[in-house]
């Protein structure tokens, strides 16, 4: 399995670099343009979550992204060493159609967009930090 490690300081203005890097990698893989768009968005959402929630906006943390590719798909592991996700249920929440102003979702869209981009999403929190694992299989490949 081939892999590459990306790393940024926990600053929101740097997240776009991760997105651009993922887009570049996806360009060399058997993924559609829509799939590449969704994966670029997913890695940005995951990094934003790490910065805003795990590090609570502190700029002195590190967000790392490992991209690993084999013959069947791409795995993106987004890791941080901040606070763990408290409500794991947020990983599975769906978005309802808003019927009124009050129904407009305040949050949770990021994880929804990550799930939308992926075939599977996992999360691990431990003493060495937190990692969100996003897997996308190649179209037509056996996953």
């Amino acid at each position: 399995m081939d892999s590459i490690l990306l790393s940024i300081a926990s600053r929101l203005e740097l997240v776009q670099l991760l997105g651009l890097a993922v887009r570049g990698v996806c360009g060399g893989l058997p993924l559609t343009s829509d799939e590449a768009d969704a994966l670029e968005l997913a890695v940005c959402e995951a990094a934003n979550n790490a910065i805003k929630h795990a590090y609570t906006g502190r700029p002195d943390g590190v967000v790392q992204v490992t991209l690993a590719v084999d013959g069947t798909g791409l795995v993106m592991c987004v890791s941080d060493k901040g606070a763990p996700l408290e409500d794991k249920q947020k990983l599975n929440n769906d978005l309802a159609v808003a019927r009124s102003l009050e129904d407009l979702p305040e949050g949770g869209m990021g994880l929804f967009l990550i799930r939308n981009a992926a075939d599977s999403v996992g999360y691990k929190a431990g003493e060495h930090g937190n990692v969100l694992i996003i897997r996308k299989g190649f179209s037509g490949a056996k996953v």
Partner: peptide, 9 residues
């Protein structure tokens, strides 16, 4: 060209 959930929010 690019919008994320924070932009939507």
């Amino acid at each position: 060209d690019f919008m994320d959930s924070s932009g939507l929010a």
